[in-house]
Amino acid sequence: MSAGDDHAALVLAQVTALTRGGAKSLATRGRADLRVREEAEDWLKKGLDSYHRRRFGDALACFERGIQLNPNHSELQLRLGIMYHEGEGVPKDHAKAFVWFRRAAEQGDAGAQNNLGYAYHQGEGVPQDFAQAAAWFRKASERGLRDAQHSLGVIYAAGDGVAQDYEQAAMWYRKAADQEHAEAQFNVGTCYFYGQGVPQDGVMAAYYWRKGGEQGHMESQYTLGNLYLHGWGVQQDYEQAAVWYRRAAEQGEPFAQSELGDLYSKGLGVPQDLAQAAIWYREAAQQGHSDAQQKLGLLDVSRRGEPLSRS
């Protein structure tokens, strides 16, 4: 933050200092400051309205008017940071975005703290610094922001900028997961499945993967299919395995496509259907899944009694 920018705040402080008269003038000042802040608030509302209509130039002008009136408004700072980060209404400028995020973050805005953590993590607008990233993600996490909680879990699991700590990773994943963060639901399910940072618990793994799967999280859907196929943490159930493999397969998960092919070829949980099996093996094979490639070949052999022509 440059000293020049901070002057703006001082000027505001000094302008309102001009009215005189002891206790009465302190009340007058309070009201004048309130009016200025209300006006800034109005510019924020107008700016957000334009932003949601994707009129970014107008939105930027509104946010800038607001920040002139109240240089300390953390949401205006955050909004300006986002516009510079995304290049909305202005050329993309990560360094400027970083400055705005930091100001809002230092004032305790959880969203800005998360963005600042991300900027440090990715080295956007600032040299990459995992320790700083962890520190800011932690602040936002403690304010209950699920994205930050998930990121903090990732940082602990990887040991980036902090000592690797699976217990901490599992704890933060779980906090985010309990706030319906799909990726965190998958990750905490994985922690439970392998017993990383938490006691191994297939039931809990199934619980979180199901939550992730129901939100459309592809990896969760695939792993939940595995649980049903093998009866890990749940009652073995081929129909359920087929349901979850299909959901992941339809989203393009090659392992799920291959498993679904297996179920069709063996008639497990679905009526046996070699044509369907071939369709799903082919999908998986096209994504480089070598087992599926092989099984597709075998399937062709068994169906036609001869190897697939190589032409």
Binding site: A3, D6, H7, A9, L10, L12, A13, G30, D33, L34, R37, N72, Q107
Partner: peptide, 19 residues
């Protein structure tokens, strides 16, 4: 509102002190 006003002036105090 009083808490908001306090926070605002406190923030400005911090800036002035830094300056």
């Amino acid at each position: 509102l009083l808490a908001e006003m306090k926070q605002d002036v406190q923030h400005r105090i911090g800036l002035a002190r830094n300056e």
